[in-house]
């Protein structure tokens, strides 16, 4: 009887510490999440948002977004955007992490300095790249033209064939330092003696990379890839500020489409349906991610 009483007493104090934050997140994130699922099965627009006159319409909204066509483009764009961004961020981040892992004098300082690109508000980054990618005055075209690499200015943000890649470039720039940082930590935890004996056996840089570094780094790489996917898949600011989804939907992603349905067209239920598809995909990825890190968490 006594130990149980003790347990309840200590637990009670624990809840006082823990619960406020949990309740805060449940009210501001958990409840809206469920609300949004309900919303996606109703017929809510501006006329009945604040009233009780809402009807359940089954999967009607999901059918509508499929039929309207932009949804399909957005899914494909979001996937291209995410995969390309993450791939380049991880590769460049890895190369930079390897470079800075050679402990020269300024390595730590310079590596830290690169974080600036990650800390700048995305709205500012997007505006900055919009400026640099301007077709006439933009520094990108000016330099490429001066170097005779191109003969005509590239319509970075005005050409539907190029625009998606332009927003991807901006996003890669944002994410490189973060990937580099995580991979640096991974690299520094690798055992040194394996490399020493490989060097004694005459292994070159490439062989060490393929046979030692990558296999040992696999758990860290997987975590970085998953995190990158999760954070990139929900992209909003970069696309919204740089192109607003255009030209002709060529950069429309799921977040911007959901936002456009809800807050430009005020078709809240259609927006909710798009957002839920986004959420469902992320949820599955998150579950896989959580399984991967569960061992470390010890919960």
């Amino acid at each position: 009887m006594l130990p149980m009483w003790k347990e309840i007493r200590t637990q009670w104090k624990g809840y006082v510490f823990v619960l406020p934050a949990v309740i805060f997140m449940l009210v501001l994130i958990g409840y809206p999440l469920i609300y949004n699922i309900v919303l996606s099965f109703q017929n809510v627009d501006l006329s009945n948002l604040a009233t009780d006159d809402k009807q359940f319409v089954g999967f009607e909204n999901y059918r509508t977004i499929m039929v309207e066509g932009v949804f399909g483009i957005s899914v494909v764009n979001t996937l291209i955007y995410t995969v390309a961004s993450v791939l380049f961020q991880v590769i460049i981040g890895f190369l930079l992490a390897s470079f800075f892992s050679m402990k020269f004098k300024l390595a730590g300082f310079l590596r830290g300095l690169m974080m600036i690109s990650w800390l700048i508000p995305l709205t500012v980054t997007a505006l900055l790249f919009k400026f640099m990618m301007g077709s006439k005055e933009g520094i990108f075209n000016q330099m490429l033209l001066n170097a005779n690499l191109i003969s005509e200015p590239i319509g970075w943000l005005s050409s539907p064939d190029v625009a998606l890649w332009s927003v991807i470039i901006a996003n890669i720039w944002v994410g490189i330092p973060f990937n580099m940082l995580l991979l640096s930590t991974g690299l520094s935890s690798l055992p040194k003696d394996v490399y020493e004996s490989a060097s004694l056996d005459g292994a070159n840089w490439w062989q060490k990379l393929i046979h030692i570094t990558l296999p040992l780094l696999k758990p860290v790489l997987l975590v970085v890839l998953m995190l990158g996917f999760i954070y990139t898949f929900k992209v909003f600011d970069v696309v919204y500020v740089m192109t607003g989804g255009g030209p002709i939907n060529s950069t429309e992603v799921l977040s911007t489409l959901a936002f456009r349905y809800s807050f430009s067209d005020f078709e809240f239920s259609l927006g909710a349906a798009v957002a839920n598809v986004l959420f469902a995909i992320l949820f599955i990825i998150s579950l896989i991610y959580l399984r991967m890190i569960k061992k470390d968490e010890g919960v």
Partner: peptide, 25 residues
């Protein structure tokens, strides 16, 4: 474990999912 899950999942959530409901709230 459940509470840790709440934090881990909410960290990964896109803002667009909670935007309209929060607007209503």
């Amino acid at each position: 474990g459940l509470m840790m899950l709440v934090f881990l999942v909410t960290q990964m959530l896109p803002a667009t999912v909670v935007l309209t409901p929060l607007f209503v709230v």
